[in-house]
Simulated scan of single mutants.
Amino acid sequence: MKATKLFISFFESEKAGGLVLLICSVISIILSNSYFSESYLALWHYPIGNHNAEYWINDGLMTIFFLLIGLELEREIYTGELSKISAAILPISGALGGMLIPALLYFGFNFGTNTQSGIGIPMATDIAFAIGILSLLGNKIPVSLKVFLTALAVIDDLGAIILIALFYTKTIYFSNLLISLSVFGILLIMNRLKVKRLILYLIGGFIMWYFMLNSGVHATITGVLLAFAIPYQDGSDKTISYKLLHWLHKPVAFIIIPLFALSNTAIILGKDWYNNFSESYSLGIIFGLVIGKPLGIVTFAFLAVKLKLTELPKELNWKKIVGVGFLGGIAFTMSIFVTLLAFEDPKIINNSKFMILIASLISGIIGYVWLKQNSKSSNNKSIK
């Protein structure tokens, strides 16, 4: 399987970004439970305009992260793993199972409780962390497995985005929503008219974001909409879509996501923190990610192959897919994002974030050990 230049760039930025993300998360938890705790927490609640710093990171800067996800998804659809239906069915099936089974497990633990709204928390996979773990195995892992994991995680993100738009919107101001969608319509017309000036799309995107922000629908959705409004053309390195995607990799991986990690992992561990593991939402998150993710990914992918809807690439086997299934349980960005939308109680939010980190740690260790034990050095070209 040929790895394109852009995929290599994406993989390498996510690989390094995963390490930065891990460091930022550890630093944030340490500071939150240190002598500097009060000052550190106050930093993220520092008022900027009508809101605090954390709000602008989550609703402003994260829109750029969603723009990158949208551009990457667009690339996958046009020229990547999702461009051929037969090949796309494998990661799509795995992603669907990896969203449905964890959600059902979470719902089973939380049905009828005030935390059942967190059903979307264990549905997403963090690309940066998952690829970061996979990269530690070097040439033991074929490129096809890395591409499968990337496509799987991108589809997961799309599922989380749809979930946010449909189920985590409480009050809608239709006039602002209509204006935002009208701007999106204008951008689509510009696309059809072959307008290629990126600045015009970015200005339109900002206007769309502003009205979406004041519509009740989460503003980060505009990042994905803008991505699909920007002309893809042939996807070459001369197109504005490629240039923007290539340019966004490092700012997102090394500035935006680290800021998100620092502000959203400011988790205070109480003296009785271990008691939180028995909470229904804690059980839903841990079982959903550690067990539900690999079970759903492997089962649905297996069924798709057995039904002859797709086939397993020659370099892969089911043991490798099981390993990736566990890595799929590494959740962070999207899961924390959904947590902030699903709950209002600060204690539940705080504890849920901690459970996401614990479940991700367990999933990452199991996935790494499993793949290391079940993979031999590959003669295929690998991305280092």
Rank of each mutant, 00 (worst) to 15 (best):
I69F: 13
F302H: 14
S282L: 05
S335G: 03
T169F: 13
L312R: 09
N139L: 07
L158K: 13
K347G: 09
S382V: 10
G292I: 08
T220W: 04
V217K: 12
F354W: 14
I256W: 03
I27H: 01
K238P: 06
I179Y: 14
W318L: 10
I267A: 00
G364C: 04
F184Q: 12
P142Q: 12
S144F: 12
G296T: 11
F109Q: 04
D234P: 01
I186K: 14
W209R: 14
A151V: 08
I356P: 05
Y35V: 14
A88E: 07
T333I: 14
W209V: 12
V252A: 04
F302A: 15
V195Q: 15
D59S: 07
L73G: 00
A331P: 03
W370T: 10
I189A: 13
N264I: 02
D157M: 13
G204E: 08
R75E: 05
M99V: 02
P313E: 11
I64Y: 06
L340N: 08
Y55C: 08
W318R: 12
T310C: 07
D59M: 02
N374Y: 06
T169D: 15
T222F: 03
Y210R: 12
L104F: 06
F184D: 09
R75D: 07
T220C: 06
S117A: 13
F228R: 01
L248Q: 00
G97D: 05
S278I: 13
G364M: 01
D126N: 13
M1P: 01
N276Y: 12
D59I: 04
D126R: 08
N276F: 11
G325L: 00
N52Y: 10
N50S: 11
T222E: 05
P142F: 11
I336H: 01
G80L: 01
S135D: 02
V324K: 08
G205N: 09
G49C: 09
L213C: 01
F332Y: 03
G204L: 08
N110M: 01
M62Y: 03
G159C: 11
I69C: 09
L316Y: 07
A304E: 11
I267Y: 00
G323Y: 05
F300C: 12
L67Q: 09
L177A: 15
I162Q: 15
P102K: 00
